[in-house]
Design a protein around this nucleic acid. Sequence first.
RNA 1: GCCGCCGUAGCUUAGUUGGUAGAGCACUCGGCUGUUAACCGAACGGUCACCGGUUCGAGUCCGGUCGGCGGCGCCA
Length: 420
Amino acid sequence: MFIKDVLESGDALEGKEVAIRGWIYRKRSSGSVVFLVVRDGTSIIQAVVKKGEADVESFAQASQATIESSVELKGTLRKDERAVTGCEISTKSLSIVSLAEDFPIKGGEGEEFLLDNRHLWLRSRGIASLLRIRMSILKELREFFEGKKCVEVQAPTFVSGACEGGATLFEVPYFDRKAYLTQSAQLYLEVMIFSLNRVYTIAPSFRAERSRTRRHLTEYWHAEAELAWFDNSKIMDFEEELVTRVFNKVSESKEYEILGKRPKELITPFQRMDYDEAIEIADVEWGEDLDYRAEKKITSDSEEPIFVYNYPKKAKAFYHRPNPDNPAVVLCHDLLAPGGYGEIIGGGERIHELDILLKRIEEVGLNPDDYYWYIDLRRYGSVPHSGFGLGVDRLTNWLVMGKHIKDVVPFPRMMRRLNP
RNA sequence: GCCGCCGUAGCUUAGUUGGUAGAGCACUCGGCUGUUAACCGAACGGUCACCGGUUCGAGUCCGGUCGGCGGCGCCA
């Protein structure tokens, strides 16, 4: 049975025989007693193997077993304060399924060594907890979207050109042509609202930016949504509800006991500030995008995320809808997480008017032919709509109060890391 | 792309004005009937990242190369 079920059985299994299998996590021995802490992916439990109590062959196997050897064992469950998880198994029989070679990770290793051995490091309790929290975040995101009648869809990973005209795409050979790895599903999601009204996708995005910070990966998970009939303000309401719900639900997870810390509950509403207000706080010139230093200044007094909205047109991508009252700015927003975790959401209202879109495409020097399908949407029953992209790994890193985004991804991909 | 830092045993590292490379942990062997990163004893373990230079002599000084780390810019 699973160790977790054994631990949660209360008194029901006290004194009864239990059988578990897993991997040896810790081993201590003293002549005629071997203590094995066994890990099975659900939890850990101590097994005590005593000469005389266990059969001769089992005792020999226990003495011989190495860290990370896989084992099967049977014995009597007993409460014991001295054991890590409060109870232990007095082992009657034990067999090694596969004897592990000397395990390279034993504590005290440096970051680089651990990353080179990420495939083995992943077995640690801390990373296992992080991965379970990551799973809950994805689950809560999906539940939230589903509750809002959003349909989960998929967009292609191979694309023929930039979504945003940036020069940060990974180029890959595609038969006799060049293709690129997507950096956003947004344009495809906009297509699908005409079929499904509200859509979302959770998928990897790729950016060939030479970024070396605690907030960047070259491959990251992107939760993107696009909703018909939403304006910039309504979509911020939606995001605020989403972030709060996911954050507060996930922060109740038991995994935080293993991590030894737990985030504080998020309180709504989040502060919303106009770009003009933001640049005054951050001491940035009008027209510039907000850099990381500015983001930190803006969020420094807050424990909640802060929306900054209506950026100058020239600081943002072509598809953002210009403000009809002030065409120098576009109806968009970023959501900045507190504590230096950076921008976790970027979103806004999309241009739904054909003439304005064509003008913008021309202004930024893109070829309208490449976007014929995107432009077509504005010809056949266009509607006002908005959407956003959320950095799942950044959200996760913030939720676990992590040091570096790479820690919350099983196999992080960065400028200088492609292995394991 | 820019700025700063680092590379010594399997791992983590010390190494003074240039003078025979030192430790802790792990592995191996021995001991131990309640361990919590168990403990005690012994033994083992080095192309000092690589290439070149200065020097009687380089882990140490100089030049270059490679690899990595942190931060910024850019972004989610």
